[in-house]
Amino acid sequence: METTLKVSKIKDGTVIDHVPAGKALRVVSILKIENNPDVSTTIAMRVQSEKLGKKDVIKVENKYLNRDDLDRISLVAPDATISIVSNYQIKEKFTVKLTKTIVGILKCPNQGCITNVKEPVNSEFSVVSERPLILRCFYCERNMTEKEVLSQL
C-alpha cells in the first residue's frame, strides 16, 4: 500500500523516523524541545510502516542531535532512523544504535546501590537485552527493566 506522510518537508533539522508507534511524545520529551521557541516540531503518530507495521515520525526543525540525545533515543526507539536535513536535502542518514554501555544517563533504581550516594562516579549500565530492554548496573549488578528506564527519560 502506498503511503504518503501528511507532513511537509523541513528545510533544516532532523527527521527521526521508525519510532515505535506511540513513543513519539517520549522522544520529544527526551529531546527537551517542547518549550524551545526556536524549534518547530511535527509529529506523525501511528502511520503505516513496512518495517514496523505502525510507526511514529518526528521532524524537528533547526535542531541537530548530539551523542547524548542519540543514546537516549536508542533506549526508547532502538530502530529509529535519523536523517539530517540541510536546505531540504538529506545530508546524512543513519540508524541509532544502542550502545553496549549506557553511562551517566540513568540513575540506578536500587536505593542500596553505591552510585546513589555521594561518590565521584557516573552510573553505568550494560545492555542485557534489547527487546525487551533490560540493563544491568555495572556496580550493584541489579537489572533495570524497560519500565524503570522509561520512567526516567
Binding site: C113, I114, Y139
Partner: peptide
C-alpha cells in the same frame, strides 16, 4: 565489606 551494593566494584575502579 560495605553496606551498599556495588561498593567493592567502585573500590576496584
Amino acid at each position: 565489606r560495605h553496606p551498599l551494593e556495588g561498593a567493592a566494584r567502585l573500590a576496584s575502579k
